[in-house]
């Protein structure tokens, strides 16, 4: 069972299309993920495989908390005061000149009117959406808008909404969940997000089988796919 991870370069797509059953992605929006997932599936099709044989996983970072406010406070308590040094970068993402001195103020109406998602950074759209919700600059940063994957902070149903929205938009077959804290964060996800996903009928109640292939919903395969090596067996 082969996984690949990273951006969809022609080299990686060529390898993934032929061999991979799992593709772990770093994507920021549903639109970007839909387009990238389609590229990965097309790479599999081009190699003569069924696109459903490659599962596309979007990374997501999580902080489970009773409220968004509580989650943000907990994140800031762990990271320490790293926000001031990131204010100017946030400004660049929003096309604004932001100074660290106003870190505890939300963006003004004038700033919000002028702000746009700078195309140089794929995370800008998320930063802009959070800014429009009225959070202070410090709180915008505590939302994890400058991080390795999209971050969701708050109660279980908010996190479940994110996953369900992406899944139902066919932006991902699944998710690579990266909690804020390794042990308590994963416990919180399992206790507060998984039951909601199950209740909504978008996540299985139990394991389908006992092998990784079965649990990824993949057909049996042993060794190299004969469709890749034996032209007589190419099915499509």
């Amino acid at each position: 069972m082969i996984f690949t991870a990273g951006g969809p370069s022609p080299h990686l797509l060529s390898i993934a299309g032929r061999y991979a059953n799992g593709f772990i992605a770093e994507v920021w929006t549903i639109e970007e993920a839909r387009a990238q997932r389609a590229m990965v599936r097309e790479a599999a099709r081009a190699a003569g495989r069924d696109p459903d044989e490659i599962k596309y996983f979007a990374g997501v970072m999580t902080t489970v908390a009773a409220t968004v406010r509580e989650g943000l406070d907990r994140r800031m308590a762990v990271t320490g005061d790293v926000a001031p040094q990131r204010v100017r970068m946030l400004g660049q993402m929003l096309g604004l000149r932001l100074e660290p001195s106003r870190i505890d103020d939300p963006l003004t109406a004038d700033e919000l009117a002028r702000a746009y998602a700078a195309p140089v950074d794929p995370r800008s759209e998320i930063a802009l959406r959070v800014a429009r919700e009225g959070w202070s600059v410090r709180d915008i940063l505590a939302h994890g808008v400058i991080d390795f994957h999209p971050t969701v902070v708050g109660p279980g149903d908010l996190i479940a909404d994110h996953l369900q929205d992406w899944f139902e938009a066919e932006a991902a077959d699944g998710f690579w969940v990266i909690p804020d804290l390794a042990e308590s964060g994963l416990d919180a996800f399992v206790d507060n997000v998984v039951p909601i996903l199950r209740q909504r009928g978008v996540y299985p109640r139990d394991y389908v089988g006992s092998t990784l292939r079965e649990n990824l919903g993949l057909p049996a395969q042993y060794g190299l796919d004969p469709r890749l090596t034996d032209p007589a067996q190419t099915s499509n």
Partner: peptide, 8 residues
């Protein structure tokens, strides 16, 4: 929907 996580 499939979920995975990280052992880092």
């Amino acid at each position: 929907m499939i979920l995975g996580t990280m052992l880092g």
